[in-house]
Amino acid sequence: MRDIRSLAGGLALIVGVAVAAAVLANLLRPSGRIAWVEDWSHYIEARALEAGLPLADLPAVETIVSNGQHVVFDARPEADYLQGHLPGALSLPYTEVEDRFEDVQWRLTPEQPVLAYCSGTECDESFLLSQFLRKQGFTNLLLFAGGFDAWQKAGKPVEKGAAP
């Protein structure tokens, strides 16, 4: 019994010292402390704006999907794409972009309007994919930061399976 008590005491001591040191270190940080609580839900939007990448909100994405002038890229892993994606979207997982890009490149000119999305505000594959496409010379890029989650939550139509 004493063992468990001394073990718990040791755990509390180590964690306590660590938390105190963390608080002190952040208060005294020479390069400016970071926020204790930060809203990461707008992280992707912030990065996109910083990178000069325009954002599309849900109504804008609805218009894009219905008029079909944009190529819509789903940047999530292909398994997620197969389970459901925006109507007309093509699968281009960011994690495999270097192998997969050739498959879609032939359809596109650099001026082709492109919209990219991933699962939602907690993913950045769509942002990274847009950056990759920009490096390939694409000039007309749009990011849907709300991603598949926002689309599905709004009750918009979802397509399943592979692209025709």
Binding site: A18, V19, A21, N26, W36, D39, W40, S41, Y43, D124
Partner: peptide, 24 residues
């Protein structure tokens, strides 16, 4: 954040405290 496991509000707290627990 990129692990997509911690709630947004806890991301910074985890990032501030966890390394100190590792060190101690």
């Amino acid at each position: 954040f990129r692990y997509q496991m911690a709630p947004y509000e806890l991301v910074n707290l985890v990032a501030l405290i966890l390394p100190w627990i590792e060190l101690t």
